[in-house]
């Protein structure tokens, strides 16, 4: 068997692929964060809770209404996105004129409250959610046993990232949004409803988090702290990519997934730390992040 750095080649290929899969989650989550920060200048610490809510709504749709995975993929982002819209209208919109810190503290607090409420209702060990019948099973790739569902996650994540990027960079709405970020007063003067656009942008960012939550439900335990565990890494991804840079967060998400995957082979104990080491190095050399504008 061929070996690379003393590790059997098949194992290494497997790890690279797994890194890519985890990277898909990082990319999808950091994308929502980057959109919200880029457009609204709000550091959305509720993102983890919204990701978790996506998974819980998927579970609730199945348990109470009998609506399966495919419905959840559509409905959960809408439901959680609506919650985001409500949150933005009633609370976050009051803080746009203040320092970033206020938005951060508010969303952090809301996140804790949401997680606490879910924990009180459903306990901490989590709920079962099965992989949809169409995506069960796995492919034998020779070097590893690849669950079909994980392949699906990568494809969907890439499509969602591309679609978001296209909407913001290539469409008229996207150009309004970018203009409103630069100079809201001027854009408003042209007769565009800027507050409504902000609200919908926040809703869309939240819907992306919930979408990732539904994708995660069959893989991870659906439990109240599932978002809190992931969100810290995702914040590191956003910081490394450059706050607010959409391309940056997507590329960094996939890249860090792979770095983390390789660390799990060579030095597993450090796999939780490696991303933060990268973050420290990037911040020291390029304070605005890899793709950020200083």
């Amino acid at each position: 068997m061929d070996e690379i750095f003393g590790i059997p080649a098949p194992l290494l290929f497997g790890q690279l692929l797994l890194g890519l899969i985890n990277g898909a989650f990082y990319a999808l989550l950091s994308l929502g964060l980057a959109v919200i920060f880029g457009m609204l200048n709000v550091i959305n610490f509720t993102h983890g809770a919204q990701f978790m809510l996506g998974a819980f709504v998927a579970w609730a749709l199945l348990s109470f209404l009998g609506l399966g995975y495919w419905w959840a993929l559509l409905l959960a982002p809408l439901i959680v996105g609506a919650f985001g819209v409500l949150l933005e209208r009633t609370m976050i919109s009051r803080l746009y004129k203040l320092d970033h810190l206020y938005g951060l503290l508010l969303t952090f607090g809301v996140g804790l409250i949401v997680e606490g409420l879910v924990r009180n209702e459903f306990g901490s060990s989590g709920l079962p959610y099965r992989i949809p019948a169409e995506l069960q099973g796995s492919w034998d790739l020779g070097f590893m046993f690849m669950p079909i569902y994980r392949g699906w996650v990568v494809v969907v994540a890439i499509v969602a990232c591309l679609a978001t990027w296209l909407v913001i960079e290539k469409t008229k709405i996207g150009s309004y949004l970018r203009a409103a970020t630069e100079n809201p007063a001027l854009v408003q003067a042209f007769g565009i409803n800027v507050p409504l656009m902000m609200t919908l942008t926040y809703g869309a960012g939240v819907a992306l988090a919930a979408f990732a939550g539904v994708l995660a439900a069959p893989i991870y335990s659906v439990n109240p702290q599932m978002g809190a565990n992931l969100i810290i890494i995702v914040f590191a991804v956003v910081v490394i990519g450059g706050m607010g840079s959409i391309l940056g967060s997507v590329v960094t998400g996939f890249g860090l997934g792979i770095i983390e995957g390789l660390t799990k082979v060579f030095w597993p104990e450090a796999s939780a730390t490696v991303i933060f080491v990268v973050m420290a190095i990037v911040l020291l050399t390029r304070p605005a992040g890899l793709f950020g504008r200083a």
Binding site: L18, M144, S271
Partner: peptide
């Protein structure tokens, strides 16, 4: 054997792949 970081590990696929190998 492989040791995973605690707390904060949610994805075990890498470790499981090593177990499989």
């Amino acid at each position: 054997s492989v040791r995973h970081p605690f707390p904060g590990t949610t994805d075990y696929s890498s470790f499981l792949l090593q177990a499989q190998a």
